[in-house]
């Protein structure tokens, strides 16, 4: 029983005080991947805005600096992900994100019908929306990198005109900005989801409410709330 977990641990003083009622959601490596990716994305988007919007461009200027920051933050964007592949926890979550279960389809149907009760939206560790978002943004970042490199190194592929690359880059930038706003809005609506990404732990009740299929199916996660496991990456 989870309630007895604290009493069976003699080194309870070393535990996080809330660990008994909490479950591990993200390892430090995963949180660093998220943090670094988020920071790079923020630099990439804000410099893009300074290059793109007239009033901001007039305010900030410094076009060469903005271009350089934009290019390098963009090219480095997949790096945290690639480094994260060294972490078993990160790879395990990638496998979870990739696969769609029957309850994910149920989640999507409920989302389409705007049914927001938790019971109507079963989810594993990641819900269907998070899975689709992750897959889509991975593809979108790769397309942005490819078209960005075409603009950066003119004449890399002469068969694709620079104008075409810019067109796809511009349109997709808008799509990414809108989708990221949705991503951040979801986070803003749910303080405990943010807590999970910030500290790595969420309450068991939150997990059961929002990710009903996660802990029930994945009993071993309880073991990771012990301090020795929690410190591993």
């Amino acid at each position: 029983m989870p309630s007895t977990a604290g009493s069976t641990t003699p080194t309870g003083a070393a535990m996080r005080p809330e660990a008994a009622g909490r479950v591990r959601r993200f390892s430090p490596a995963e949180r660093w991947v998220h943090r670094a990716t988020g920071l790079l994305m923020l630099v990439c988007l804000s410099t893009a805005a300074c290059l793109y919007f007239g009033p901001l461009a007039q305010l900030v200027g410094r076009r060469y600096l903005m271009v350089t920051l934009h290019e390098w933050s963009g090219i480095l964007l997949p790096l945290p992900f690639v480094l994260g592949l060294g972490s078993p926890a990160f790879r395990a979550d990638l496998r979870r994100i990739n696969r769609f279960s029957a309850y994910d389809r149920q989640w999507l149907r409920a989302a389409r019908r705007r049914r927001n009760r938790h019971a109507a939206r079963p989810a594993g560790k990641f819900n269907a929306g998070q899975k689709l978002y992750a897959g889509w943004i991975a593809g979108a970042v790769l397309v942005m990198m490819f078209t960005g490199l075409l603009m950066w190194f003119m004449g890399l592929l002469p068969s694709i005109s620079r104008t075409s690359a810019i067109f796809v880059h511009d349109i997709l930038a808008w799509a990414i900005a809108i989708v990221l706003l949705g991503h951040m809005r979801r986070a803003l609506e749910d303080p405990e989801a943010r807590l999970g990404m910030r500290t790595g732990y969420v309450s068991r009740s939150w997990a059961q409410r929002h990710h009903s299929q996660w802990l029930g199916k994945d009993r071993t996660t309880t073991a990771t709330t012990t301090p020795t496991e929690a410190d591993k990456v």
Partner: peptide, 8 residues
């Protein structure tokens, strides 16, 4: 959870 279609 690593079963089902690779939708991601």
């Amino acid at each position: 959870e690593a079963e089902g279609a690779p939708v991601g």
